[in-house]
Amino acid sequence: MQDGGYDSEQNKKVTWEHHVRQTSEWEGELWGKKHDFVGREAFGRGERQPRALQEPGTFYEYNDVRINRFALSLLRLWEKPLPSVLKQEIMDPIGASDTWQYVPYHNSVVEINGKPMPSVSGGTRWGGGLWINSRDEARFGYLFLRQGKWEGKQLISEEWVKKATTRGGPGPDYGYLWWLNTEKKAWPDVPATSYAAIGAGSNIIWIDPEHDLVVVWRWHNGNPNELFKRILSAIQP
Rank of each mutant, 00 (worst) to 15 (best):
M1Q: 14
V14I: 15
T15G: 12
W16Y: 13
H18T: 06
V20E: 05
R21N: 13
G28L: 09
E29G: 13
L30W: 12
G32Q: 10
K34R: 15
D36T: 07
G39W: 04
R48T: 10
P50S: 06
L53R: 12
E55T: 15
G57F: 02
N63S: 11
I67C: 13
I67W: 09
R69C: 06
F70P: 05
F70G: 06
L77D: 12
W78P: 01
E79Y: 05
P83A: 10
L86E: 03
P93I: 09
I94E: 02
A96N: 03
S97N: 05
T99L: 13
P104R: 05
H106E: 15
V109K: 11
V109T: 15
P116C: 03
M117P: 05
M117Q: 15
P118L: 07
V120D: 11
G123K: 01
W126V: 14
W126D: 14
W126L: 08
L130E: 04
R139P: 05
F140T: 04
G141W: 00
L143H: 01
L143T: 01
R146G: 00
E151Y: 08
E151T: 02
Q154V: 04
S157V: 06
E159M: 11
G168D: 14
G168M: 11
P172H: 07
Y174D: 06
G175Q: 02
W178M: 12
P188W: 06
V190E: 03
V190L: 05
S194Y: 00
Y195R: 02
G201R: 10
G201A: 04
I205L: 00
W206K: 03
W206C: 01
W206D: 00
L213Q: 01
V215H: 00
W219A: 14
N221K: 15
G222V: 05
G222M: 04
N223L: 07
N223Y: 11
A234Y: 11
I235G: 06
P237D: 11
